[in-house]
């Protein structure tokens, strides 16, 4: 198996490694880097549990080769808030009971980050469509929608405060 040297930034830290051509980015993150917050729930890009940010865009890392991420800037659930603090989405999911088993949660949050980045004040419908690439089997989505709404509000306020 051909090996390739890749270098990328993950959660602010530069990472270099020799990887197989076929190694999926999700496995690189989980197995090689031991960051297991990014989950695997399917093999057809259907569930979104593996969603991460690549150069700010939410991407299902189960369908992305590690070699393709050479030079990329990657953020995973472990990197969205400093230790001991919460990203507004993490806080909102806790406040609104937006998680049960927690398995889909990292992917939901990573997807929602980009959603709120591109649409800071989404309607309920826009949120539902916006997270429709991420499956949750526990919550029935009502409280996930509320969590995203709460985070949107808080992030808007934060933005106003910094302007």
């Amino acid at each position: 198996m051909a090996k390739h040297k890749v270098t990328m930034t993950i959660n602010g830290a530069s990472v270099s490694a020799e990887v197989d051509s076929r190694l999926l980015l999700v496995h690189f993150i989980r197995e090689n880097l031991d960051m297991t917050g990014t989950h695997i729930g399917c093999d057809t890009s259907s569930c979104g549990a593996c969603t991460i940010l690549i150069d700010g865009k939410s991407v299902k890392s189960c369908t992305y080769l590690a070699v393709r991420a050479d030079g990329a800037n990657i953020t995973t659930i472990e990197g969205i808030a400093a230790d001991g603090t919460n990203h507004p989405l993490q806080k909102a999911f806790h406040d609104q009971h937006g998680l049960h088993c927690g398995f889909c949660t990292p992917g939901m949050i990573m997807r929602s980050i980009e959603l709120l980045e591109t649409n800071p004040n989404p309607t309920e419908k826009e949120i539902r469509w916006g997270i429709s690439g991420n499956l949750c089997r526990c919550t029935g989505y009502n409280n996930i929608v509320k969590s995203v709404q709460q985070a949107a509000e808080e992030m808007s306020k934060e933005k106003e405060a910094t302007v």
């Binding site: 989950h39 808030a81 993490q90 999911f93 806790h94």
Partner: peptide
């Protein structure tokens, strides 16, 4: 009351079977 188990899941620190190495 808010759930006590949330924090680890929200920070990607849950420990599921596939996370065991």
């Amino acid at each position: 009351v808010k759930r006590k188990e949330d924090a680890r899941f929200l920070h990607g620190k849950g420990n599921y079977t596939d996370d065991v190495k």
